[in-house]
Design a binder for these strands. Structure first.
Lengths: 224, 224
DNA sequence: AAAAATCTGTTGCACATGCAACAAAATTGA
DNA sequence: TCAATTTTGTTGCATGTGCAACAGATTTTT
């Protein structure tokens, strides 16, 4: 929607690390790179068309959201600036579900074709391989995020999911949630009210302290 | 343990696709590639040392398993031949947990250093970039698997988890489980007995048919 | 072939969780 | 600034799920 923005300096993006400005220009055409800007809360992309595009969030944040046949909402991935996504990379739509990328604030996304990345480059872009290497790095990071995701989701109870999530994200005992508590429930794959209930227990037991989106973990009491 | 095996023909591995035998030999040294063979049921690797190795299952299958402080077992990933794993890629150990790679049958694994892959190659391996590209492909595939994982785990009930898992794996309505029913419970992150109970319901409702590891999905009844 | 180990299948029970529904607080938008 | 919307926080209730414990079937090992 919103299309007015200053000309981007692509060279700062991790994906173009160690690639000269000249090569970059050539590659932008070669990979069919295009950049789109989206308004807040809009759907960037519906999964299911089988398109082999790779998107990179170059500005803002977004969520990869699934709504199942019953209307249950699940945040499959939380995408920060620099995150990459795409049907080729992960998540294919199951029957009855809908998967889409939803922006949080305004958001800018760069797309390129997966096939062009994987094909040997006929136009002799000297830095093609560097780009693949950079992409490899990005995918690796994304994969680690996904790993954390599985770590959390695979816990048996809401309590354990919360504690696991907190443990992963807390830097020296505290951190700020990247989304609302409601969204957190969608993220850990459980009912919101049930999560609130469990959160209250954790608070009452003095294990965590929650003030808005600020979460503080209590230090482990010493034994003896 | 078991070390007697015929000399491997690396050139068939997807990771060495489009790389000449000569280059390959050079790279084996350059990347500190080493191959290990493991006996059935043994622990290939304990996570937590922060080692930046990437492992590739070149023969056999294995599971990436987490045991939490309470002894609850969870299969984080099921690794088929060709799968890659490593702490750099996904899953870092949380306090109180142990994560390890456990072979199913006998298993052969090739290791290489992540840092060597990401560094510009001083030894001028001409095919370094091709290997990165191949690795990129492998990581992408692994990521899709992980995506399926999240798809299943993020479902709210055992019933939905099972149906989702079945839907993903069934080719024209039927498939064979890659592991035991007990392991399936560990994989979908729920209690075995509870899963059996739910499985029985699904069977009674005529939605699925389970015979050993063979799973058959009932066709959707026509409306009207 | 016998013994050991694992896997399947089941049950009772306590309790955690999902669901629906509501009110108050906070945030967003006009 | 007021209205609309979203978020937080809570509760009752039905039921789904984890846990423990067991017996029989199956597989693996010796």
């Amino acid at each position: 929607m919103n299309t007015k923005h200053k000309i981007m300096d692509y060279s700062n993006f991790p994906i173009f690390q160690n690639i000269s400005a000249a090569s970059m220009e050539r590659m932008l055409a070669c990979f069919h790179v295009r950049q789109c800007t989206y308004a807040a809360g809009s759907a960037v992309r519906e999964y299911g068309d089988g398109g082999k595009e790779v998107g990179i969030i170059t500005d803002g944040t977004a969520d990869l959201v699934r709504i199942d046949y019953g209307g249950t909402r699940t945040i499959l991935e939380h995408l920060e600036t620099g995150s990459i996504f795409g049907e080729v990379l992960a998540f294919t739509v199951q029957t009855g579900d809908s998967i889409s990328v939803v922006t949080e604030g305004g958001c800018r996304v760069m797309y390129m074709d997966y096939d062009h990345i994987m094909k040997r480059c006929e136009n002799a872009c000297r830095h093609h391989s560097q780009l693949v290497q950079n992409l490899f790095q990005l995918v690796t990071e994304q994969m680690q995020q996904m790993g954390q995701r599985v770590e959390v989701l695979s816990r048996r109870s809401i309590r354990e999911k919360l504690l696991c999530y907190f443990a992963i994200h807390a830097k020296n005992g505290a951190f700020t949630l990247p989304f609302t508590l409601s969204a957190l429930a969608d993220y850990i794959g459980s009912d919101r009210s049930a999560m609130m209930r469990e959160l209250r227990k954790l608070r009452q037991e003095g294990l965590v302290q929650v003030d808005g989106r600020q979460v503080t973990l209590a230090l482990q009491r010493q034994a003896g």
